[in-house]
């Protein structure tokens, strides 16, 4: 059974497989109440995700870029059901779901995740067979241990390892091989939607190419839909059909990959693309983007990017820009673009 068949009765193919509307996630990082009472400190709330809306079509890849602390990983964890959003809804195959509530085992099985650090995401005391086979047993996909063993072997071959490797422990593998094992584990429950949070950031360039090629091939083979998170713009460009740019918990731009890289609209996207070190910017250290990402604890009022934005005006400092649709598809949240200044 392919993931397609699993979902065939649930959604027509042109409807989005995954969509989120006004997704928010707040973290309460207040000091303990006794400290607040004694020192009269207020509650402190971080808005890690603020009103995120997007949709992903089946078999497509949405790339997500942004700097540390912009909420990329929080978004991944909300979608994977590893934490509950504070507000907003997620739709999977047309139905509203709350994966963190464990009420949707069928959807939980169809949504899997690959994490950044293959040294931390595999249990060192479990053999590869135990790690990869666990979802098979948990979802009842394998009837017996023998069947499970056979399916794990097939998965290992699928990701470019040998069935004999299943008896080994994570310690015995290199970083690239571990990430292949993590991919095999994610594939074990035959998912339709794979959330990849910086899957190659911990890998060397030559190993990265092999893992990215593997992910591409698996996508074609199994008709997978990807949410691909990375801070590496060339990697996102290579992997994605559409790209979203996040800044301080907000989605500031979302466009088809080519238009985003050829004609970025949001000033943050423009500066991000200019500053990425590349082989073609040889000999000139590109004019770096001034300033730093503000603390999410204390975001600036108005547009969160206004302190670093060369085009910011009075309106940008007080009024928060809402997403506006772009003619070629996608959206941007910027007063300057709206007013035709940028």
């Amino acid at each position: 059974m392919t993931p397609d068949q699993l979902l065939a009765d649930q959604a027509p193919t042109d409807a989005p497989l995954v969509s989120v509307q006004n997704l928010s996630r707040r973290f309460d990082v207040s000091p303990p109440w006794i400290t607040r009472a004694l020192y009269r400190q207020p509650r402190r709330i971080v808005r890690a995700l603020d009103d995120i809306t997007f949709a992903i079509q089946p078999k497509r890849t949405l790339g997500l870029v942004g700097e540390s602390g912009c909420g990329k990983s929080t978004l991944a964890r909300c979608l994977a059901g590893l934490m509950s959003p504070s507000g907003g809804v997620m739709h999977y195959a047309g139905k509203p779901v709350d994966l963190a509530s464990k009420n949707d085992p069928k959807v939980r099985r169809a949504v899997q995740m690959v994490f950044q650090d293959p040294y931390a995401s595999l249990n060192p005391r479990w053999s590869v067979e135990e790690s990869v086979g666990d979802p098979l047993l948990a979802f009842g996909l394998a009837g017996s241990r023998a069947e499970m063993r056979q399916m794990v072997g097939a998965l290992m071959v699928e990701v470019g390892l040998s069935p004999r490797d299943a008896q080994k422990y994570p310690l015995q593998f290199s970083g690239g091989q571990r990430q292949r094992i993590a991919v095999a584990r994610a594939l074990a429950s035959r998912p339709a939607f794979l959330i990849c949070d910086e899957p190659t950031s911990a890998l060397d360039v030559s190993v990265q190419a092999a893992v990215l090629n593997l992910m591409r091939r698996l996508q074609d083979e199994y008709g997978l839909t990807y949410l691909f998170i990375s801070h590496n713009l060339p990697v996102v460009d290579h992997m994605s059909d559409d790209v979203g740019v996040m800044y301080l918990g907000r989605l500031v731009e979302l466009q088809p990959t080519e238009s985003l890289f050829d004609a970025p609209r949001h000033p943050y996207t423009q500066l991000l693309i200019q500053t990425v070190p590349s082989l073609d910017t040889m000999g000139r250290a590109s004019a770096p983007l001034k300033g730093e990402v503000p603390s999410p604890l204390n975001p600036p009022p108005g547009c969160a990017f206004n302190p670093r934005c060369p085009f910011a005006n009075a309106r940008c400092r007080v009024e928060r820009p809402e997403p506006t649709a772009l003619p070629g598809g996608g959206m941007v949240a910027c007063h300057g673009v709206q007013e035709g200044r940028i």
Binding site: G176, V205, A209, R217, N232, P234, D237, F261
Partner: peptide, 23 residues
């Protein structure tokens, strides 16, 4: 040559990245 070819580049839009076989 293999190392530099394996680096994804903005705008290259290759189907697959050239990779060096083996480790």
């Amino acid at each position: 040559r293999g190392l530099i070819a394996a680096i994804p580049r903005v705008g290259a839009r290759l189907a697959m990245l050239p990779q060096i076989p083996g480790t």
